[in-house]
Amino acid sequence: MSGFFESAWAIAERDMRAEWRSREIFNPMLFFGLLVIVLFSFSFEPDAEETQRIGGGLLWMAFLFSGMLAMNQSFPREMHERTLHGLRTAPIPPASIFAGKFISNMAFVVLAECVLSLLFAMFFNLPLLPILGRFAAVLVAGTWGLVVTGTFFSALTLHTRMRELMMPLLLLPISVPHMIAAVSATAELFQQQTLSQLWFTQLIGYDVVFTTLGLLLFHFVIEDV
């Protein structure tokens, strides 16, 4: 089992190092997220009270769309130099490729979300500090489910025509229940400063189910790459 974690970490570390040098995912993702927030705020022009009510939804839409940019490129990047073929023939469990990709995507997306949340709190004058711990918990649990399905679908759509269109078409409907829970939990945090057990449990449930399915089914997806 140690081989699993070691190889997953090796893949994640390589991805993070490549990203540190090129910043070809993080910068566009951050900029795109910022654009979504700006566009939404112009479309709705929320006042202070409204921001607390719709802020959760606004923030998660920005996270979802910008996160999709990172996840969409996750596996196709491995096709240029046929590095995925190399990974697949390496003596490592196939699920560890998925786990490694998941870890690096999670790092990119969470980092971008932290910056976006700060900017969001600043623009809309939302006091994040008193709810910081609970907000971070919702952020991580919400992002986990999103990234786990997104990373999986990035591999799943490798062989489809119009791949970049197909990935969001698969990801969006499946992440609706997860988004409902994340948005509701965040809205409740903004409005009442409390974290609902119900929504949080649902976020964790989704994370557990789809992480398990992803790890179990991943080797079928890359069987003959």
Partner: peptide
């Protein structure tokens, strides 16, 4: 087939979120 399994797993999630 793999997506089909993801889809059926999401149905109870949708039910719970509602």
């Amino acid at each position: 087939a793999v997506y089909g399994i993801f889809a059926i797993a999401a149905v109870p999630m949708v039910y719970m979120s509602n």
